[in-house]
Every structure is written in structure tokens, then in C-alpha cells.
Design a protein around this nucleic acid. Structure first.
Length: 312
DNA sequence: CCCCAGGCTTTTC
DNA sequence: GAAAAGCATGGG
């Protein structure tokens, strides 16, 4: 590794928890005595190694990403500019004292600003299946269609794979690609069609990044693609378009809205109608501007503390 | 064989 | 319009 940094943060950050909280299917955990996490971001291999909750190391072959110095880039990538406690209104701890206590450890969990195309394809793989299967699909996509690149980490060779480019997936054979999607042909077809949209410039993520774009409009645009409904559209917005107000509602979110917030709506089947009703409800007890950020912390807390699920 | 998993699409009322 | 059923696959 040519460049190495040690970063100290003011805010709590738990790298391993963040990278495997379920939002990131784009990072891989290395099997080493000291766990490390690797990914390729904008063609640059990056390895992260956690030292403590306030310190971690970055290894890379370059010292900047798109002209932004690496430490600064990582800071932004892990949304350290966002104070996640502000995702909850001031009276939240008073209204939900028990929940507030359970939630405390999860403030060190960060949402990441990931690449929109990679996020879109990853979450298209996430319909009605378990998290380890989602990760398996994304890994297979990377290894089957992404360019390999090996880097040195502590004098060991580590092979990383790029996430496939839109062009590569756009040209893929549906039958072959479906081996990466649990043999689901429909999903494979939708992924290829979406990749073609991006490759041909019919879908422009730069335009969709505009913070002035109303969330409903953004959601409708994304939903025009087959295989993308409201939930996945909200995930793309939250995890890759900087829309921390987007509040994806899945089976787990629906469950905790019923249990923790006593929502009667949450006990009905999740139709578009209930989806919008829950979206609106959630904004009454969460900070609307950061509802999605709050939702993600609650989501992870629910999964781990109540359901006893492991993320990886 | 049951149910569930970070849903979406089509049919039916 | 909105609710209900159908879909598709692997794992517990």
C-alpha cells in the first residue's frame, strides 16, 4: 500500500458495524487476524481497518478520490457531517425512554454515501430474501462481471473486484446473469434493463442528486424501472443520493413501527396505501429531514436486539 | 411442509 | 382506486 492514514473522529464510528449493518453489500470482510474491510470506490481500492471506536486506518494506492483528499473523502463517505442524534426530536427520549436506552449503542452506526448505480443494483437483489443471500448475489455479480484488481495489504496480496460497470451489465446474457440472482430470471432481466438505462444515459443520477428535487418525484422516477418499487427507490435515495429524509419501509420497519410506536397501520398488510400512511406517521415522531437516518438506526436495533439477527 | 426473508407485479373487486 | 393474490427462491 502506497498511502496510509490514521483517522481520528469526534463522532463515534463503529466501522465494522457500519459496513455490515446491512446497507452495504459493496464491502467485503477480510479473513485476517485483524479484520479489515475492502472495496473499490471510483476505481480506487480502499482498505479500512478499525483500531477503536474513534480511530481507524485507511490503506489505498492513491491519496485522493476525485481530487478530494482521502481522509476528507472517507469523512464524507461515512456521513460524519451528519449528527445522527438530530434525527430524533428533542422530546423523543422523554416519550420513549426505554427505546432511547436500547438505541444508544447504535449511534456509532453510520449510513454511507455510496455509488448510486451500485446501490440500485444491490437493492434490486433484495426482494423477499435474507440478507446473506443478498450479499451472496452482489458478491457473485462483482466476481462474474467486475474487473479484478489485486492490492497489497500488510504484505499480503488481496484480490478485490470492481462492481460491474453499467455497460458490462447492460450487455450481459440474462441466462448467465441469473446465476448471480438466485436463478431468478425476472430479477436478472430487470437488472440488465436498468443497467441499459444508465449506460444509454436515459437515467441520470447526477440529475437525481439534486436536493431540490421533491422526494415523491425522485421516487416516481426511480419506480419507472421494472423491479424497483417504493421501498427500493427509498433505499437508493437514502443510501446513495444523499436523501436522509427518505424512509424505506420493509418488513422489519413495519414490525417495529407496530411494536415500538404502537402504529395500527403497521399491523395491516404493506400495500402502497399503508406504505404512504406509515411514511407520514414516522415523520411525526422522527425528524422529517433525517427520518431515513433515524429509521436505519431503529432498523438495526430492532433486527439485532429484538429479532436476534446477525447482519453477517 | 410450514413460514419467513430489507418486495414487486398482476389480477380482481 | 385499492385490496388480494401471485410470483420466485433459499434457508430455518
Amino acid at each position: 500500500m502506497k498511502y496510509q492514514y490514521e483517522i481520528k473522529t469526534e463522532s463515534l464510528i463503529n466501522i465494522s458495524q457500519s459496513l455490515f449493518s446491512g446497507q452495504s453489500f459493496l464491502w467485503e470482510k477480510g479473513n485476517d487476524s485483524t479484520p479489515y474491510y475492502s472495496s473499490i470506490i471510483k476505481s480506487i481500492p480502499i482498505i479500512l481497518c478499525e483500531i477503536s471506536e474513534h480511530e481507524f486506518e485507511i490503506y489505498s494506492t492513491q491519496n485522493s478520490v476525485d481530487g478530494v483528499p482521502l481522509p476528507e473523502f472517507i469523512n464524507r463517505y461515512f456521513t460524519l457531517d451528519i449528527n445522527s442524534e438530530l434525527a430524533f426530536p428533542e422530546n423523543f427520549s422523554r416519550l420513549y425512554p426505554e427505546l432511547w436506552q436500547r438505541l444508544a449503542p447504535y449511534f456509532s452506526l453510520r449510513i454511507m454515501r455510496q455509488d448510486p448505480f451500485e446501490t440500485m443494483i444491490s437493492f434490486m437483489c433484495a426482494q423477499g430474501i435474507g440478507m446473506h443471500l443478498i450479499r451472496k448475489q452482489v458478491t457473485m455479480l462483482r466476481e462474474s462481471y467486475g474487473e479484478a484488481r489485486s492490492v497489497l495489504y500488510r504484505s499480503k496480496e488481496v484480490v478485490l473486484h470492481h462492481f460491474p460497470t453499467p455497460e458490462k451489465l447492460a450487455a450481459a446474457d440474462p441466462a448467465l446473469l441469473s446465476r448471480c440472482t438466485n436463478n431468478n430470471r425476472v430479477r436478472a432481466r430487470n437488472i440488465i434493463l436498468a443497467a441499459q438505462c444508465v449506460a444509454e444515459g436515459r437515467m441520470d443520477f447526477n440529475a437525481l442528486c439534486d436536493p431540490a428535487l421533491p422526494l415523491s418525484e425522485l421516487r416516481n422516477t426511480l419506480c419507472q424501472n421494472g423491479g424497483i418499487g417504493y421501498k427500493i427507490a427509498d433505499c437508493i435515495a437514502l443510501f446513495s443520493l444523499g436523501r436522509f429524509d427518505a424512509f424505506p419501509i420493509d418488513t422489519h420497519v413495519k414490525q417495529y413501527l407496530g411494536e415500538w410506536f404502537n402504529s395500527a397501520t403497521a399491523r395491516r398488510p404493506l400495500s402502497p396505501t399503508t406504505y404512504f400512511a406509515l411514511d407520514k406517521e414516522a415523520r411525526t415522531f422522527l425528524n422529517p429531514d433525517l427520518a431515513g437516518y433515524a429509521g436505519h438506526l431503529l432498523f438495526h436495533c430492532w433486527r439485532k436486539e429484538v429479532k436476534g439477527l446477525r447482519t453477517f
